[in-house]
Simulated assay, not measured.
Amino acid sequence: MGADGLRLPEPPAHEPAFEDDFTVPRLSKERWVDHYLPHWTSPERSRARYDIDDSGLRLRIDADQPDWREEDAPLRVSNVQTGVFSGPAGSLRGTHRHRSDGLVVRTETPERLLWAPAAGRVEVTVSASVDEGCMLAAWLVGTEHLSEGDSGEICMFEIDAVGEGESHARCGVKAHSDGRLTTDVTEVVVPLDASQPHTWTAVWGPSGTIIGCEGVIVRRMAQSPRYPLFLMIDLFELGPRSHSGTSYPKTAHVHGVRGWDALDRPEADAS
């Protein structure tokens, strides 16, 4: 599994600072914002479609779901994230400035730092979508509330190729507009059916970043963002809307999330 093949360090013995197993019937507003980067678009376009069932949080792409932004179409997304930040409407300030061609805030969104560690460990247990045109992803992205340069990203996984014996995912670090980082994202092959429950882990701190799947390291990098990051978990439908013979909703599950802040050096060491 990946180029490293070593086991991840054990999680801290103390309780997580952030935890959700989605066993209550409503999404916790103290933990999650159920919109995808709402400041860059309108509320009806950013709002996640989801429900909670016996398996956890089921993210959905519905047949009538609008594109997230007209300029980014065709792209539909249902996402939950652990905070939000933007400047005033019409400004250029906001978390995850994904394009450089005049992107401005359309919906001013009050700053909410629900969980935004600058170093730590997070574990995300998911079942990826097998639906046509879909990708399940989890990212840690710079909040940018302190500086617009704090824009780097730890891409835990982007899964859009699921198989019975093996699945493909992309993971690594993305610099975006942070000149202190270098984009380093590669595809890894994991020997499992990603449509079944499995756990991805990111551990990051001053010594670098490690990313693992099912307890095994798949990426090890000497760099990491050094500022607060939001966790985002997203189900995308990419490309043209599927033909009429494809059934909706398209779905993926998030079964649980655990996160620890600012770990001691042995836990965060990726050297």
Results as ranks from 00 to 15, higher is better:
residue 1 M to A: 14
residue 1 M to V: 07
residue 2 G to L: 02
residue 3 A to I: 01
residue 3 A to T: 03
residue 3 A to H: 10
residue 4 D to Q: 08
residue 5 G to K: 07
residue 5 G to D: 13
residue 6 L to F: 06
residue 6 L to H: 13
residue 8 L to F: 06
residue 9 P to N: 07
residue 12 P to K: 01
residue 13 A to T: 09
residue 15 E to R: 09
residue 15 E to S: 13
residue 15 E to L: 05
residue 16 P to E: 11
residue 17 A to H: 15
residue 17 A to Q: 14
residue 17 A to P: 14
residue 18 F to I: 01
residue 18 F to H: 11
residue 19 E to D: 10
residue 19 E to I: 01
residue 19 E to Y: 07
residue 19 E to N: 11
residue 21 D to I: 00
residue 21 D to Y: 04
residue 22 F to C: 08
residue 23 T to A: 07
residue 26 R to S: 06
residue 27 L to P: 12
residue 27 L to R: 06
residue 29 K to F: 06
residue 29 K to N: 12
residue 30 E to P: 10
residue 31 R to M: 04
residue 31 R to T: 04
residue 32 W to C: 06
residue 33 V to W: 01
residue 34 D to T: 08
residue 35 H to C: 09
residue 35 H to S: 13
residue 36 Y to E: 09
residue 37 L to M: 07
residue 37 L to D: 06
residue 38 P to H: 03
residue 40 W to K: 11
residue 40 W to A: 05
residue 40 W to L: 05
residue 40 W to V: 08
residue 41 T to H: 02
residue 41 T to Y: 07
residue 41 T to G: 02
residue 42 S to D: 15
residue 44 E to R: 09
residue 46 S to R: 12
residue 46 S to Y: 15
residue 46 S to A: 15
residue 47 R to I: 02
residue 47 R to G: 02
residue 48 A to S: 12
residue 49 R to W: 02
residue 50 Y to F: 09
residue 52 I to N: 14
residue 52 I to K: 13
residue 52 I to L: 12
residue 52 I to P: 13
residue 53 D to E: 11
residue 53 D to Q: 11
residue 54 D to V: 08
residue 54 D to N: 14
residue 55 S to P: 03
residue 55 S to Q: 14
residue 56 G to M: 05
residue 56 G to S: 10
residue 56 G to I: 01
residue 57 L to R: 03
residue 57 L to T: 01
residue 61 I to S: 10
residue 61 I to G: 09
residue 61 I to M: 10
residue 62 D to E: 15
residue 62 D to W: 11
residue 63 A to T: 01
residue 63 A to Q: 04
residue 64 D to Y: 12
residue 65 Q to F: 00
residue 65 Q to D: 01
residue 66 P to R: 06
residue 66 P to H: 10
residue 66 P to M: 05
residue 67 D to E: 08
residue 67 D to C: 00
residue 67 D to I: 00
residue 69 R to I: 00
residue 70 E to A: 06
residue 71 E to H: 12
residue 72 D to Y: 14
residue 73 A to Q: 11
residue 73 A to K: 10
residue 73 A to R: 10
residue 74 P to H: 14
residue 74 P to F: 12
residue 74 P to V: 05
residue 75 L to K: 08
residue 76 R to Q: 15
residue 77 V to G: 09
residue 77 V to E: 06
residue 77 V to F: 04
residue 79 N to M: 04
residue 79 N to E: 14
residue 80 V to D: 15
residue 80 V to F: 15
residue 81 Q to E: 15
residue 82 T to H: 14
residue 82 T to I: 07
residue 83 G to V: 01
residue 84 V to A: 07
residue 85 F to S: 11
residue 86 S to N: 04
residue 88 P to A: 11
residue 89 A to G: 13
residue 90 G to N: 12
residue 91 S to Y: 00
residue 91 S to W: 00
residue 93 R to D: 15
residue 93 R to F: 11
residue 93 R to S: 12
residue 93 R to I: 01
residue 94 G to Q: 15
residue 94 G to A: 11
residue 96 H to I: 05
residue 96 H to A: 06
residue 97 R to T: 09
residue 98 H to F: 11
residue 99 R to C: 05
residue 99 R to L: 02
